[in-house]
Simulated scan of single mutants.
Amino acid sequence: MPIDPQAARLLAMLGAARPTDWPGVSAAARRDGFAALMRMAGTPPAVASVSDVRIAGAAGPLPARLYAPRDGTAPGLVYFHGGGLVAGDLDTHDALCRALAAGSDCRVLSVGYRLAPEHPFPAAAEDAVAAAGDALGRAAEFGLDPARVAVGGDSAGGTLATLAAGALRTRVALQLLLCPALDAAPDTESRRLFARGHLLDAAMMARDLADCAPGALDLADPRLSPLRDPDLAGRPPALIHTAEFDPLRDEGALYAERLAAAGVPVRHRCHPGMIHHFYGLTGLVPAARAALADIAAELGARLAMG
């Protein structure tokens, strides 16, 4: 299937404005550009309430935002935003989290974990585990049904969600991964095919990795590359969504295969015609809007089953 026409036009527009010298792009510029991209999520749906709260991180309290689609206790999703572990925050993912909460009838707790380069690896990974554990421990305070709490994230936030799911596997009901980054040193066909011109450039990812993990780190470390974790048995069931024209497509598919081989229930869907970050482009790409609605509905249905 060819790339979605609206997504293709968006790529053409972005291509003229995006930097080409990624090693020279500052973290501040990376964050500004990512925030501008996330504004393409369009008008967020209404939810019953939104409140800023605090959640425990590995080195102290972190900002978090709780989205409630209705009054009363509900299933929950602890969510980690994308942005290469360098960009993104509670505001960039506000529309996406509102859409997930409204479409799933679940409470969504979005976590503002520490970012690189100010806080290099493994700060974000440690924050993710600490925050998810704190959310589960304070489930009643946040209006979450403790037996039906999922962890989720997009792109690099998907990396963090897998780490939280692995550390808290018996307490987490489900993991939701949207175009997850799962291998810091990949050798996949999709990484080669879509290295440039498909929103998530290889040079940009290399710059983010340099900010996150300076020095001679082991890129096979499962905290950087969850796909390389030798033991995936006992993980929570997974919903994995990838995109046909995404450099990260193949590692998402491989992770689904490895989870299934380890006996973990998994459903993987590759969205035809879509690019990386399609879930955040719903204001401009109608097919992405429909896909996100389906993702949220499936999340709600799975958590409603208990």
Rank of each mutant, 00 (worst) to 15 (best):
76 G>I: 00
214 P>M: 02
206 A>E: 12
281 L>P: 03
83 G>I: 04
56 A>P: 03
17 A>F: 04
135 A>V: 11
12 A>T: 15
227 L>S: 06
46 A>K: 09
212 C>I: 11
263 G>D: 05
224 L>H: 02
168 L>R: 11
294 D>K: 13
219 L>V: 03
226 P>L: 03
202 A>Y: 01
278 F>T: 02
9 R>Q: 15
172 V>F: 12
228 R>T: 03
246 D>E: 03
9 R>P: 01
246 D>I: 05
131 A>G: 10
242 T>N: 04
276 H>N: 13
41 A>H: 12
282 T>D: 01
271 H>Q: 14
140 A>K: 09
241 H>R: 14
256 A>W: 04
130 A>T: 10
197 G>D: 04
208 D>R: 01
16 A>R: 15
270 C>D: 14
177 L>K: 08
122 P>E: 01
272 P>M: 06
175 Q>H: 10
161 A>L: 10
191 R>N: 09
273 G>H: 12
68 A>F: 00
70 R>N: 00
131 A>F: 04
108 V>I: 10
299 L>H: 03
252 G>A: 03
19 P>I: 13
74 A>E: 00
63 P>W: 00
139 A>N: 11
286 P>Y: 11
289 R>M: 02
55 I>S: 05
301 A>F: 05
58 A>M: 06
263 G>L: 08
34 F>M: 09
223 R>N: 01
254 L>V: 04
141 E>Y: 14
82 G>H: 06
19 P>S: 07
209 L>I: 02
208 D>V: 03
88 G>K: 05
77 L>K: 06
35 A>V: 10
201 D>G: 02
305 M>W: 03
118 E>S: 13
254 L>Y: 02
20 T>R: 15
172 V>N: 11
198 H>R: 12
133 G>P: 09
19 P>H: 10
96 L>G: 01
214 P>N: 02
141 E>C: 00
56 A>S: 14
115 L>Y: 07
51 S>L: 07
241 H>Q: 13
213 A>F: 02
301 A>M: 10
294 D>A: 15
62 L>P: 04
280 G>E: 09
136 L>N: 07
178 L>I: 14
179 C>R: 06
48 A>M: 01
107 R>A: 13
230 P>R: 05
185 A>F: 01
180 P>T: 05
239 L>N: 09
148 R>C: 13
265 P>I: 07
87 A>W: 00
2 P>K: 06
15 G>V: 11
301 A>Y: 00
283 G>A: 04
43 T>I: 09
247 P>L: 08
142 F>D: 11
140 A>F: 05
259 L>N: 06
277 H>M: 13
115 L>C: 10
88 G>V: 00
168 L>N: 09
153 G>K: 07
222 P>R: 04
73 T>A: 14
123 A>G: 06
79 Y>W: 15
23 P>I: 07
153 G>E: 05
172 V>R: 12
223 R>E: 00
129 V>Y: 05
82 G>E: 06
293 A>M: 07
288 A>Q: 04
16 A>S: 15
255 Y>E: 03
289 R>Y: 02
79 Y>E: 00
162 T>A: 13
237 P>I: 13
4 D>Y: 10
107 R>I: 08
241 H>Y: 15
290 A>P: 01
106 C>G: 06
137 G>M: 05
234 G>D: 05
224 L>Y: 03
163 L>R: 12
285 V>E: 04
241 H>D: 10
278 F>M: 04
124 A>L: 06
306 G>D: 13
232 L>I: 08
1 M>H: 14
